[in-house]
């Protein structure tokens, strides 16, 4: 047990070290390639239907987009703080920060539900036009990633509360954190493309 608690590489990120499980990084690369293809499909279609895309974009609630961007940025911050707390062996802070990250993940979902409801009530759907097809498909696929990420964070929060990160390696926590940051990274581009670029 002592041998495990004395693992030296948990104090701080070390040069030339990949945080978390290598397999999650292969998965992250695959996800980025898939979303990258979506982004390019969006911008190519936009170029041929500029008026439709610009007019439809005006009907989006940009404030909701900004709020959700700030929510994910802050949630990622909380996850990094949780990891820092685990590395500096402050166990009670790990679950606190993970709890903040989970709450923000749920807040993102609620804002999205509010946004979708407003669109459906206005008679808009993914069949309305090409812009809305992209808007609903891309944000719903991303939302599924947010839901999955929040479940992962909840599993880690439970483990943290049970003392699972009080000692020993933190690879599991790093793996979940990396996935959550990818969700944040993808939203940064979705926000710019769908809500801002005119």
């Amino acid at each position: 047990m002592n041998a495990i608690t004395a693992v030296p590489d948990q104090a701080a990120p070390i040069a030339q070290r990949l945080p978390g499980d290598r397999d999650v990084w292969i998965f992250i690369c695959a996800e980025l390639l898939m979303f990258g293809a979506f982004f390019i499909a969006y911008i190519v279609n936009r170029a041929s239907e500029l008026a439709v895309f610009n007019d439809s974009q005006r009907t989006l609630d940009r404030t909701c987009g900004v709020i959700n961007t700030l929510i994910l940025i802050s949630s990622s911050w909380a996850v990094v703080q949780a990891l820092a707390a685990a590395r500096s062996r402050r166990p009670q802070l790990i679950s606190t920060y993970l709890g903040v990250a989970i709450a923000l993940g749920v807040a993102f979902m609620l804002v999205k539900v509010f946004e979708y409801t407003a669109k459906f009530e206005a008679g808009l759907s993914m069949l309305t036009n090409t812009f809305y097809m992209f808007y609903f498909c891309l944000t719903m696929i991303h939302l599924m990633h947010v839901v999955a990420g929040t479940v992962i964070l909840t599993v880690m929060w439970n483990k943290a509360r049970a003392g699972g990160y009080d000692s020993g390696p933190l690879q599991g926590l790093e793996t979940g954190a990396s996935y959550w940051h990818m969700v944040d990274l993808l939203w940064i581009f979705l926000f710019a493309l769908l809500y801002l670029l005119r």
Binding site: P13, A15, Q16, R17, P19, V80, M182
Partner: peptide, 9 residues
Amino acid sequence: DYMELRHAP
């Protein structure tokens, strides 16, 4: 910074 790839392989 968040994904900590600054010091990754």
